[in-house]
Design a protein around this nucleic acid. Structure first.
Lengths: 161, 161
DNA sequence: TGCTAGTTGAAAAACTTTTTCAATTAGAAT
DNA sequence: ATTCTAATTGAAAAAGTTTTTCAACTAGCA
């Protein structure tokens, strides 16, 4: 598994004359192994366990690189902070559980009709979109139907700043 | 016009036992008069011309308040920065021109079918969404069809940070 | 006119993200 | 294996935005 990550990534990086370093491996492995989105700080903390030397700056740089090459995706939050999540195949958006942080991916094309209709109505050439959806996942919904008791919170509730 | 802004706002604020102060008037007037989204820093700069004492902290606090009560809306950018724009009637999203910053509003209900379909597919109770669309508006498109020459740029090109 | 809760501004703090730069290292060539 | 070189790293500092603190101030009501 770690091998898959590494070999797939090595090839991808080679095409761009980029190197597969231990820090980069550590970071991608953390993200690939996570079951939900992670902040740069959290990624740093986790990756340090495997590679204690790792600096936060490298995490940021690596996340930029991985995002650019499509290995991970940025998740935007309304407070302006970002989290990162491994990329599935060809998907582009996430529906994140506001309680446990679990994320479902959905396809870009679900948004296509809306964009097409708006382009027609407004005359804009729409080329960038950012969509984030949040809500309670089925598990969290059934565990606390009133939204009061929160049984397993795996995501920092508030400012992950 | 300024009167309309003030009187409408005074009533709204009174309901919440909030005061209509000079700083708040100045800030809302700036946003209402603008033809496109403004960053807190830009709002601060402009509002200072009318009310030189104004501190940036007050701008942030006022923007939170105005957003909460629905007088303005936050526009999210992928770099994590925010801009603010006056709220139209019942609209909820914006399509922002990446060249000149002009913004079109479109209705929340345009997004409803997508959300309904995702709720059905995933079982999530979706209660928060954030959608930002960007592209070239018709004017900017026709002025520089190749996207090379940019004739009137009224928005800071890059990091408004 | 006075009272009081709400508001303000300045300074400092809190954070996230970026820049700089000397030291290090992966990967290709030898 | 060894060498070479461009890419990469980490530490520190800088750059930004946004929040917190707190004493002074003020809008709105009695």
């Amino acid at each position: 598994m770690a091998t898959l990550v590494s070999s797939g990534m090595r090839d991808g990086l080679r095409e761009h004359r980029r190197k597969l370093t231990r820090p980069r491996q550590a970071i991608l492995e953390i993200i690939a192994a996570a079951d939900h989105h992670l902040t740069p700080a959290e990624i740093h903390k986790r990756a340090r366990k495997k590679y204690p030397h790792l600096g936060l700056v490298t995490v940021y740089r690596t996340l930029d690189l991985l995002t650019e090459y499509g290995y991970v995706q940025r998740v935007h939050f309304s407070d302006g902070c970002h989290s990162y999540i491994a990329t599935g195949q060809g998907h582009a958006h996430h529906l994140v559980c506001s309680n446990c942080g679990r994320a479902e991916e959905f396809e870009d094309c679900d948004l296509a009709p809306l964009i097409a209709s708006l382009q027609r109505k407004t005359g804009y050439e729409i080329n960038v979109h950012m969509l984030e959806l949040m809500g309670r996942c089925p598990d969290c919904s059934s565990r606390s139907p009133r939204g009061v008791t929160q049984i397993r919170r795996t995501v920092p509730p508030r400012n992950h700043k």
